[in-house]
Design a protein around this nucleic acid. Structure first.
Lengths: 210, 210
DNA sequence: CTTTCAACCGACACCCGTGTCGGTTAACGC
DNA sequence: GCGTTAACCGACACGGGTGTCGGTTGAAAG
C-alpha cells in the first residue's frame, strides 16, 4: 500500500524503535483498509519497507501486532477528542467542541478511525470482544458527557441509549463523509450537524437560538 | 455456523432450486458475519448442510455467489422500506413510517442489513465499487425523499449531503442497536428518534408539536 | 581498525482455502 | 422393477499466508 519509507530510501538500517514505529504506522493503514483477516503481514512489511520476517523481531505474531495498534489508536483518539468533552461552556458549546474535535480527528487519522469504529469481523472471539469493549467505552463516555443535557431535555430511561446511539452513529457518519470530502468547509459541516441536533429539522434555519 | 438444515436431517436429497435457496441463505449469514475475504466456502457449505463442492454446482465461484446474494438482499431491503417512503401524510408522518420500516427490516433480516450497510473491505476493486454503488443509491433515495422537507427547513447547498449523511448513519446506528436489544419497544425507539430529529435536543420532551 | 551486537534477510515447513474432476447414488419417468 | 438424470461427494493440484531459523552485514563501542 502506501510506502512509508522516506522517499529516496537507500535501504538504511534504522534503530529498533524507529523501525518499530514505521511498522506500527504501516499496520494501522493496512489493517484499517482491509480488516484483520484480509490483511497479510506481507502487505504491512512492504508498506513499512522491510522484509516480512522483520515483523517477528518486533511483535510475536499478527494478533499481538493488531491488538497493539488498536490500543495505540484508541489512546490517540481519546486524547484528541477529550479536549472538546472536558471544555467549558453550556451543553451546546461542549457538544459543538466535541463534534468539531471528532471531525478533526477523523481528518487527521482516518485510518485510526476506521480501525476503531468500523466493525472488524474476525474469527478470533477475543479480538471481537476487545473491539466491542472500545465501542461500549465510547458509548459510556458520551452518555456521561450528555447526562445533564439529556436530563434537562426530559430524556430518561429507555430513551437514553437510543438517543446516544443516534448521536454517535450520526456524528460518525458525518465525520466519515467529511473525511471523504476534504473540500467541504469543516466549520460549516459542524454547524449543520449542531443545528439539526439542537433545533430539529423544522427549526433548522432559525438563527442563534438557545 | 448456524445449521440451516431442518432439524432431523437424514441427509435427504433436495431439488436444485431448494438446495440453491439454502445455500443462498447460509451465504448471507456467513458473509454478513465475517465479511467477504474472511468467509470460507467451507463455512457456507457446512451451514447449508452440504459438501463444499456442491456450491460449485450452483455458482461459478465465490465472487459470483457473493454478488448474487448482495443483489437479492438489496431488493429485499428496498421492497420492505419502500412502503414507508412512498406512503401518504406530511413530512413527519413519512419520516416516521420510513424509520419504522427500516427498524423492522433490520430486525427481520439483521444479516442482510450488515451485508449491505457495514463496510466490506476486500481486495477486489469491483466488489468495493458494487458496495459503494448500493450506498450511493441509498443516499440518493433518502435525498429525494427528504427534498421537500429540506427545502422547507432552509437546508440547501453544501448542508444537504451533511444532513442526509447524519440521518442515514444515525438511523442505521439506532437500527443496529435495536436489533441487538430485542427487548426494547420498537415503537418507543422510533418515537425517540423522530422526536430528536424533528424537535431537537432541547425541545425533545415537547409533546405532539408540529 | 577491530570487535561485537542486533537489525535485517531469504528460505523452509506447515496449514488452509480455492476451484476442478470423476465417481456414486437418490429420485423420478416409463 | 428398470434406466436415466442430476444432486451429491471425496480427492486432488495449486496458490498463498504464517511463523521459524540460520546466516549476513551495517553501525556503534572500545
Amino acid at each position: 500500500m502506501t510506502q512509508v519509507e522516506t522517499g529516496s530510501a537507500p535501504r538504511r538500517r534504522l534503530s529498533a524503535a524507529a523501525r518499530r514505529q514505521r511498522i506500527e504506522s504501516a499496520a494501522v493503514e493496512v489493517f484499517a483498509e482491509r480488516g484483520y483477516d484480509a490483511t497479510t503481514l506481507g502487505e504491512i512489511a512492504t508498506a513499512a519497507g522491510v522484509a516480512r520476517s522483520v515483523l517477528y523481531d518486533h511483535f510475536p505474531d499478527k494478533r499481538r501486532l493488531y491488538l497493539h495498534v488498536l490500543g495505540t489508536e484508541s489512546n490517540a483518539m481519546l486524547a484528541q477528542v477529550a479536549d472538546g468533552i472536558t471544555g467549558a461552556g453550556d451543553g451546546r458549546d461542549r457538544m459543538h467542541a466535541t463534534i468539531a474535535a471528532y471531525l478533526a480527528y477523523t481528518r487527521d487519522r482516518p485510518a485510526g478511525r476506521r480501525l476503531l469504529v468500523d466493525p472488524v469481523p474476525s474469527g478470533d472471539p477475543e479480538l471481537d470482544q476487545v473491539i466491542r469493549g472500545y465501542r461500549d467505552a465510547r458509548a459510556q463516555v458520551v452518555t456521561t458527557l450528555l447526562a445533564p443535557d439529556l436530563a434537562r431535555a426530559g430524556i430518561a430511561g429507555a430513551a437514553v441509549p437510543v438517543v446516544v446511539e443516534l448521536l454517535i452513529a450520526g456524528v460518525d457518519g458525518v465525520a466519515r463523509w467529511s473525511a471523504d470530502h476534504p473540500a467541504a468547509d469543516q466549520d460549516e459541516v459542524v454547524g449543520s450537524v449542531l443545528r439539526l441536533l439542537w433545533q430539529g429539522l423544522p427549526r433548522y434555519a432559525d438563527p442563534g437560538e438557545r
